[in-house]
Design a protein around this nucleic acid. Structure first.
Lengths: 197, 197
DNA sequence: GTCTATATGGTGATAGAC
DNA sequence: GTCTATCACCATATAGAC
């Protein structure tokens, strides 16, 4: 596979970068091949040189790249954090809120179902491994340390991601007060301590 | 406005019922006017007799009906439940899981943005009033009873809806274990008691 | 209330020249 | 690597007959 900077793969690299920005902002179905081409300053059919199998191939290539970067960065940040669950979750939430790109609800409900079956299965697995598994692992470890109660780590990861996702997903009329980081911390406290007095 | 059973409004009523089923299952953008017409056994242009302003008008009419029924039923069930927050949340979650229809993440991110601005604003407000407000009110009341800590009821309602929504929205490879009602109860306990030991 | 016929525009995709 | 030209298909929507 040609690398960036080798002149051979430069065009490909640029295509992936621009496509990533658009796909992550508006989703697979929300972006047309023409829009991507326009943003690149080329004509729409020229994209088929880089993704001969079509739009779904381009999307999967973009997703793979983005998820791999995400997974690596998340791993680094968790490794550098304190060993208790609250500190780890704060690191995760802050990274997810700043790096932005993944809109899980849209991906799971709109993008992935719109892909051809084989591509959808691959995409699903990639998301699971890069996004859910690392978080589920945090909960599992905390359980092994007897830090938290015996709840399914998978369910806990799903709940955590849903909460984070909801910070971006919904906008209620009278907006949440304060910056997202603050709400993120409040959600973590809520998850760990509960809301009862 | 013609009522069902008066023969005058029967066709309209049937249109709204069929359109509701499809819109709630697959969303505004996920259903075409042709599909709705096919399901009704009529031709696509005939729908424009019932919704002269087009698809968005049909969607809004459907949404209004569905939300009003939802709001009324939720109100009744909450009124009939015990007065403590856990019991009330259980009632809410069970109703949301069984009545199904609203996929909040999809509505907020896909359907509403796809509507004309004026229709979108109306839809947004209707959802807020019928879905979020009643739940936020439960939290506010619990706070007044000093049952829970002083967290923004709006944020709590958003979190609760996000958690419930996520039960339908995502399917992780190794599925959550057990029936949705059980997971629903677990999520409520998690929200109220926290996960720390 | 519903029909046929049609306008208009967007979409992903292919063929073949340069 | 990118172009032009073009295809087939789907969408919402309108006009006017019955």
């Amino acid at each position: 596979m040609p690398q960036p900077g080798t002149r051979v793969g430069m065009a490909r690299e640029r295509v992936l970068q621009v496509a990533e920005r658009l796909f992550m902002e508006r989703g697979y179905t929300g972006v047309s091949m023409r829009e991507i081409a326009d943003a690149l300053g080329i004509k729409q059919p020229a994209l088929y040189y880089h993704a001969p199998e079509g739009k779904h191939q381009l999307y999967l290539a973009v997703l793979e790249r983005a998820l791999e970067r995400h997974r690596a960065e998340l791993h680094t940040r968790i490794a550098a954090s304190d060993a208790d669950l609250r500190a780890q979750l704060r690191v995760v939430v802050r990274w997810l809120l700043h790096s932005v790109p993944f809109n899980m609800a849209r991906m799971a409900q709109i993008d992935i179902p719109a892909l051809p079956a084989a591509t959808a299965a691959t995409a699903s697995m990639l998301v699971w491994e890069a996004l859910y598994l690392p978080i589920a692992q945090l909960f599992a470890n905390a359980q092994a340390r007897h830090e938290i109660r015996a709840l399914d780590p998978t369910m806990l990861a799903g709940a955590a991601v849903a909460l984070i996702d909801s910070l971006r997903a919904y906008d209620v009329p009278e907006e949440y007060t304060g910056p997202p980081e603050l709400i993120g911390d409040q959600l973590i406290d809520m998850l760990l301590d509960g809301v009862l007095i």
